[in-house]
Design a binder for these strands. Structure first.
Lengths: 159, 159
DNA sequence: CCCAATAGTTTGATGTTCAAACTAATTGGG
DNA sequence: CCCAATTAGTTTGAACATCAAACTATTGGG
C-alpha cells in the first residue's frame, strides 16, 4: 500500500523531470532542425535569425522597423543591420510610407514569400507530429498546459 | 450538419495555430524570465548562457570541457572563454585530471552549486505551473506529445 | 513657423563565436 | 623505449551580432 503510493509518487517525479528537460530541449532542437533544413534548401544564404525576421515581417502586414524590433526585443540599430542583409539577399523590401515619410513599411519579395511559406509548412508539420494520434479533448489539454505556462510567465514577469 | 463539421474543423485549425505559436514563444519567454529573475538576484553577474553552462556542469558529474562543448554544440574555444569568465566570477573550478593530465574536469564552487539549485527550483516551479490541475493521465498525454515531437525531430534529422 | 517628438540609420565599442594554429600529454606500433 | 599520431584544452585572429548614443529626416502641435 505504502509502497504503491511511493512508487506512484516516484513515477510522477520522473515524468515531471522528463517534461522539464523536454521543454527546455524542444526549442534548441527545433532551431537546429530549421537551420539544417535551410542549409539543404535553396535558401542556403539564410540563418535562423534571418528566417524568423522574415517570418515576423509576414505576408501582408506591412509592419514597420520599430514594430519588428520590439517584437524581437532587439534594438532598432540591430534590426537595420539585418534588414540591410535581407534586402541585399533579395528577401525583403523597404517601402517608404508616403503618408509619413519617416516610416519604413517592410515587405517580402516573391523569394521572401516563398521562404515564408516553406517555413510555415515546416511548422505545421511540426505541430501535426506533436499532436499525432490525439483527439479534440487531448488537443484542448495540450493547449491548456501551454496557456498555463504562458500565464505563469506573464504574471511572474509583471511583478 | 456540414456547417457543424466545418466549424469543428476551423476550431481545430485555430487550436493548432495557437499551439504552434505557443511552442515557439515558450522558449523565448522562459529565457527572458530566467534572465530577469537572475538580474534581481544575487547572481546578477550571470547571463542566460552562463547559467546554462553552470547547469550542464551539474553538481556531481565532473564533466570534461569537450563533453560540455559537445552538449552545447559549441566549439571548445568558445567554451574555454566562458569557463574563464565563470571561473573568474567564482562559479566554476577546473580540476586537472591526475589520471590523464590533458583532461580538465569541471566542477562548481559552493556559489555555483547555489546557483544551480536556485535555477533547478525555478524549473520545477515552471513545470508545476505547466501541469497545473492535471492528473496522471493528463500528464502522460503531455509527455506523449513531447515524445512525439522529439521523435519527429530525431528522425527528420537523421536522414 | 518653430521646436519637441518620432522613425530609422550610422557609428563605435563590446561580446560571442568559430576555425585553425598551438601546447601539453598520452598512446600505440615498431 | 622512442617517436609519430592522436587527443584535450587554450590561444589567436577574424567575422558577426548587438547595443546605446549620436545623428538625419520628417512630422505635427502650439
Amino acid at each position: 500500500m505504502i509502497d504503491e503510493k511511493a512508487a506512484a509518487e516516484a513515477a510522477r517525479k520522473q515524468d515531471e523531470n522528463y517534461i522539464n528537460n523536454a521543454l527546455v530541449d524542444v526549442y534548441d532542437n527545433i532551431m537546429r532542425f530549421e537551420e539544417q533544413q535551410i542549409r539543404g534548401s535553396r535558401f542556403r544564404d539564410i540563418n535562423a535569425r534571418e528566417l524568423h525576421i522574415v517570418h515576423a515581417i509576414g505576408l501582408h502586414d506591412h509592419k514597420t522597423t520599430t514594430q519588428v524590433a520590439d517584437e524581437f526585443r532587439m534594438s532598432k540599430g540591430t534590426l537595420t543591420a539585418h534588414l540591410n542583409n535581407l534586402e541585399r539577399k533579395g528577401y525583403v523590401i523597404r517601402q517608404r510610407n508616403p503618408a509619413d515619410r519617416r516610416v519604413i513599411n517592410l515587405g517580402l519579395t516573391s523569394k521572401g514569400r516563398l521562404l515564408y511559406r516553406t517555413h510555415d509548412a515546416f511548422h505545421r508539420r511540426l505541430v501535426k507530429s506533436f499532436l499525432h494520434g490525439m483527439d479534440d479533448d487531448d488537443r484542448q489539454l495540450i493547449k491548456q498546459a501551454l496557456m498555463n505556462l504562458e500565464q505563469f510567465l506573464d504574471e511572474a514577469q509583471k511583478k
